[in-house]
Amino acid sequence: MSKAFLTIEHVDKSFTRGAMTNEVLTDISLSVNQGEFISIIGHSGCGKSTLLNIVAGLTQATKGVVFLEGKVVDEPGPERAVVFQNHSLLPWLTCYENVSLAVDKVFGRTKSKAERHDWVMHKLKLVNMEHAKDRRPSEISGGMKQRIGIARALAMQPKVLLLDEPFGALDALTRTHLQDQVMQIQAELNNTVLMITHDVDEAVLLSDRIVMMTNGPSARIGEILDVDLPRPRKRLELVSDRTYIAARAAVLKFLYERHKFVEAA
């Protein structure tokens, strides 16, 4: 049986505090092919971030397994690099040092010092941030921080790139700019990407498939939508594209008609 690149098999997650058990995820199964861009969309509190953390290995599933290339995922590691929502750069290091911390750790044995330097500079260039390499995170804008976060993740040369609402905290203009950049990088490197988002346009624009989650507690995968749009995709041309409009409508319908967000009682 040929296994997919990344498989999530029957994952359940519940948090127990004292006698209270809180079911967050129920029976999540998903297989992702190499080079695929998957978005996970759902209302807030539906456990999408928990799912991502399980794939990252930062959280353990209560039941079920995650396989990456046939190997069980049970701890975090650089082959599943995460871009955190709040960038998580280390404020005492410069942008360059933030990336090189990852590079030195991952490639400390396999690459020479000069090679590692070139590698860091290449990743900074990829996100157009080589001009700010000696600045500290506090001295650059939110969008720039997130770009350094992406550079750091890419620098680990991950098998799967995990994006946890990477553009959620950014203003709309910066967000579009970064989305375009991510598409470009994706076209260049053909990464396997799992992205959490709550932005419908972002999901349709970037992904090959959109995983829509039902509301928590006990959230499950409600529907998976194939976005059959050719790449490279151009934001402006898509606005009037029929496939795009249909996909967008399907996601909106799922989120706002069938699984309307109800404030937890």
Binding site: A56, G57, L58, E75, P76, G77, P78, R80, A81, V82, F84, N86, S88, L90, W92, L101, A102, K105, V106, M156
Partner: peptide, 26 residues
């Protein structure tokens, strides 16, 4: 912050590296 711990975990820093690269500066 949990974020820094997550970064350390994803990078698989060992306890010594964690001590002087994350814990002390943070």
């Amino acid at each position: 912050p949990q974020d820094y711990k997550n970064v350390a975990q994803v990078l698989r820093l060992n306890p010594i590296e964690y001590f002087h690269k994350i814990m002390l500066p943070a």
